[in-house]
Design a protein around this nucleic acid. Structure first.
Lengths: 341, 341
DNA sequence: ATGAAAGCGCTAACAG
DNA sequence: CTGTTAGCGCTTTCAT
């Protein structure tokens, strides 16, 4: 910047002005300065700018993983929305480990983020402590809880699970295998599983935990089929696992929804095109990203602490569950055919 | 920091020391300072640190989108590897638009990134200009080209396409529908399509462009079936599109691989569990992320400009293409059954 | 409209 | 081992 000022024959103050408030500097002076900047290929120091303005225009997102579509969809949406507000996004993955989350949060504070997107409502005290000390606004996504200490922008995971359960019950299903990812450190899954147990009744459901992946779904279905007689339906806590369940069921010669129904939660773009198309509870990942980004941007920018936002979830009925018209007696005796319709 | 020094009754220099080189300061002094830091909840200013050290520990990734598994897998891997090197990752999406890419790159330079991951080898001059002026190292991923002006860490897209084509030809297929995403701004797709045209022979293949998504694959397959008689096989330039093709074929009552073969490129985690499991050319996304992250970290840290890295790709044969044993005459006359075996 | 000068919060010689 | 001091590169009064 000093070089530029010399090259243009003006003071550093003037150069700084054409950088920040070009309208206050005379036209020809500005032209000269801009030429100098161009010549010297000057790029202003981010650090120096930050130290004076107190602004870094950096936001951080702490998410379990990017390998799950639900999060990559959300993050993509957050990033795209943030552009319009002039922010850049640092992503950090936590693998649903609160310790790791706190560690990475610390690193993000150290590089100067002005705000955080956290996932869920289960965090370590170290993280809360950091947030308080560094005075950094933080939003929790993927969950809705108006009583949580941080503002939440998300959906009601319990409700989503209940919706799916109610649908299965409506269809007359009674014996249900619930397939879900690791409970450890994952409050969203916990909430869904708990809601399922309550809605279905503990004696009507069997729980199978496996990694959140297609392969995990395959493994869970395999175990469910082996360990549980006369199942009516599968309820998966995430679509990717449902993909695996569908695959395994097909491999075993079981027909969906004729022999068993499969319902899920997420509604990923691919879920419309499975065999058969998947009945699933839609979770508005993209919309959530957008709303969360807007909230945090406003919070950081205008110091307006947002209030919790609850996004709508709803059942998308497709053909992996019986259509109401089909609920008439069948007389299958195969152990894996449903025993009640 | 001044507050801390006052609270601890030492100079700011000492406080700075316990922050950076704690071992050089006396045990009890250090304890006092640390207590003061704890009391006041002091967090050092990232900007001030950066202005002095000249380091931000920030790297930027410019990718088309996070909504495609191949990129989210890569980014996930990059982020995880970077942690070990003490870097944080800013992600910015470009939608394969060089202008947008250059704009975002500019923003990233303005927030102080020390290095870039770019996608592919097609970029705007503005971007190169920026890279030169800001003196920021940049790596190109998803592609291998040892002659490219920037170091590349990727795979040979032409070779990947050729591998898939060769497999289809080996199987005796002659009339092939090539399904691919938008060519505009996407050098990876261009390379694959071009290689396919050369390998297959222009008179043996038909090209169908659609969005890179399952729905896009469905649409492309629909058009291919309607517009082209007696197709032998589908070659998809990305697995997600193959998922859609498989779906549409099944919907039309066509059997894979009996009536038509389907081959693809990517080998996503889900591709093992389609119906039938997908024959596809494996692209090592995670490994690429890891290698790229290591290269860029080393470059930024030790000023060692890396040399291009070409990662291995290989065909993963599954059942969406005929097994060699099956290549015997069939006498179907349905217009969409293959005419030659 | 422009320049001079005082910091921003911290690090790094250099002195003691 | 610890304190003093001079910046780092820029923004921002306050004069002119």
């Amino acid at each position: 910047l000093r070089d530029v000022s010399r090259e243009a024959g003006v003071s550093v103050a003037t150069v700084s002005r054409v950088l920040n408030t070009p309208e206050v500097v005379q036209k020809d002076t500005r032209a000269r300065v801009e030429a100098a900047i161009e010549n010297l290929g000057f790029v202003r120091s981010a650090a120096a700018f930050a130290i004076n303005s107190g602004r870094t225009r950096l936001l951080g997102a702490l998410i379990p993983t990017l390998e799950s579509d639900i999060f990559s969809l959300t993050i993509n949406s957050i990033e795209q929305t943030l552009v319009d507000h002039g922010f850049s996004l640092i992503v950090a993955t936590t693998d649903d480990d609160p310790e790791k989350e706190a560690r990475k949060a610390r690193e993000l504070v150290d590089v100067g983020v002005e705000g955080f997107f956290l996932t869920g409502v289960e965090h370590s005290d170290m993280l809360y402590d950091l947030l308080r000390r560094a005075q950094v606004p933080a939003l929790a996504i993927s969950n809705f809880d108006s009583n949580f200490r941080l503002p939440t922008v998300g959906y009601d995971n319990r409700w989503a699970a209940k919706t799916a359960c109610a649908h299965l019950i409506d269809l007359g299903h009674e014996r249900i295998a619930v397939v879900h990812g690791p409970l450890m450190g994952n409050d969203r899954t916990k909430a869904r599983v708990e809601a399922a147990r309550e809605t279905l009744g503990a004696q009507n459901c069997w729980f199978f935990e496996a990694p959140v992946s297609v392969a995990g779904g395959v493994a869970a279905a395999h175990r469910a089929l082996a360990e549980t007689a006369s199942l009516d339906a599968f309820l998966c806590m995430s679509d990717v696992m449902a993909f695996g369940v569908l695959h395994e069921l097909h491999r075993c010669g079981l027909s969906v929804p004729k022999d068993l129904s499969v319902a899920s939660i997420h509604n990923l773009p691919a879920s419309e095109f499975t065999h058969p198309p998947l009945t699933t509870v839609h979770l508005p990942a993209r919309q959530m990203g957008k709303r969360a980004a807007e909230c945090l941007a406003r919070w950081v920018e205008h110091d307006e602490r947002p209030t919790a936002i609850c996004l709508d979830t709803h059942l998308v009925r497709r053909s992996s569950t019986l259509s109401a018209g089909n609920i008439s007696g069948s007389t299958q005796v195969d152990p894996h055919k449903r025993h009640s319709r």
